[in-house]
Amino acid sequence: MGTVRGAVAPELWEGVVRAALGGGRRPVAVERLRGGSKKGVYRLRLDDGSSVVVYRWAAAENYWPGAGDEPGAGAGGTGGQQDPFSPASGLGLFQAAHRRLAALGVRTPRLYLADGGRTLHPADLAVVEDVPGENLETLLGRDPRAAEPVLARLADALGLLREHRAPYLGRTAPSGAGALPASPSSERLVVERALADLAEGAARDARLAAAEEQLAALVQAHGAAVRPRAEYGLVHGELGPDHVLVDRHGHPVLIDIEGLMHFDVEWEHAFLRIRFGEHYRWLDHDGLDEQRLALHTLAMRLALVPGPLRLLDGDFPDRGAMRGIAEHNLRAALALLR
């Protein structure tokens, strides 16, 4: 993994801007935006006062040690149905997710250019709309009442994803019209991943180690209580309020969409409950399977302990925030034993 990250000189983006927007405009300033651990996100300010955002996928942009061991929380498959918890990164996944969301009418930043040929720039990249305004997390902190219509619209978007069902797990539909390949059940995958996350977390923190046997038994009990399922909805996978922009019309705009996949909608809602807190009431859904939700909530808590700590094995800059996430979820996991 490279460690040199930062803004790139504006003149190096001139060909990219020309290909994305046509002639007549050129970049005059480049700003690296905060957030994101797997790709670089840059705002290009243009000479006419407008701006665009560039997503850049390159080894030097990936903060994960090994660039392939991201945590289960929020991750999804790489395109194969068998592995919905493998790293979610790359231009191909972004394009596939963008097409799917556009077809469903779920708002994401408009895509101006996707280039994987590396003729314009020495990395895969996408040029997208720079959505003006703040993200939903900032709006909720500043004016929760003003955020309510946005939350209601976000709930509608989640409904569109939830109802887009498929008889398989993962990010891409099986090719051909024949029988579906054998696939593990979602609950089995979650149990296996939760036990692996628990083992790693226990190796990193003595408090988890002391409770490892009890937590493992609880994971197995939750998994055994889940009844089989034949269809899966579409989930974003890591839909915190920081991954929802708010456009000038008050519409939610989903970003960091590479993890979009068919999976249990309860996986999405376990994460929503954790990240939205009291505001989750706007996003709740009556049709959730409570047994699956209990399993996924425990699994999510266990994933959010070793994942952030693993990220800190590298040079991720916001280290206090990652330690806080790990500590908060460790305590929450232990509280589930009471």
Rank of each mutant, 00 (worst) to 15 (best):
E212M: 01
I257Q: 02
P228Y: 09
D247N: 12
P71R: 09
F94K: 08
G233A: 08
G15E: 08
D83E: 14
S175C: 09
P27G: 12
G35K: 09
H251V: 07
A157K: 10
L215K: 08
A20G: 02
R145S: 14
G170R: 02
A202E: 00
A59W: 10
A59S: 14
A224C: 10
E187M: 05
L330Y: 06
R301W: 09
H236I: 11
A114D: 03
R100I: 05
W13Y: 02
L44M: 08
V235L: 05
S51R: 04
P87K: 10
E213H: 04
G233Q: 07
D318A: 12
R165D: 10
D48I: 00
Y63Q: 05
E268R: 00
H222Y: 15
R193Q: 15
E238Q: 12
G77V: 08
S185C: 09
A19F: 05
H328R: 15
D284P: 02
A221H: 05
V8H: 07
A206V: 12
T297R: 15
Q214N: 08
A67E: 12
V219P: 05
L334K: 06
V128F: 04
W64N: 10
V305E: 14
G141P: 00
H243S: 15
A221M: 09
Q220M: 09
G116P: 01
A270Q: 04
A58D: 11
A294C: 08
D156Q: 15
L21N: 07
S50H: 05
R292W: 05
D197C: 09
V246T: 01
E200Q: 13
P241A: 13
A67K: 10
D124I: 04
L334Y: 03
G68Y: 01
V305Q: 12
P149I: 00
V17W: 06
A206N: 09
R323C: 04
E148M: 02
G23W: 11
L125V: 01
E70L: 06
G24Q: 08
A157C: 14
E61N: 09
A88Y: 00
L254R: 01
R107Q: 03
A211M: 04
R310A: 14
Q214L: 14
A335F: 07
L254D: 02
E137I: 02
S185P: 04
D318C: 03
G24C: 12
H269A: 01
F263Y: 15
A211Y: 02
A166F: 03
D48C: 02
L161S: 10
A332G: 04
M300P: 01
D315F: 10
L12C: 09
L337R: 07
L295C: 08
G314H: 03
L160V: 11
A88V: 03
E238T: 11
H296K: 06
M261E: 13
H328P: 01
V54N: 02
V219L: 08
R34F: 07
Q95W: 12
L111H: 04
P308S: 05
R118F: 06
L120E: 03
L295N: 07
D47V: 08
S86H: 06
A152D: 15
L208G: 01
G23D: 06
D124C: 06
G176D: 08
E187Y: 04
A114P: 02
D156R: 15
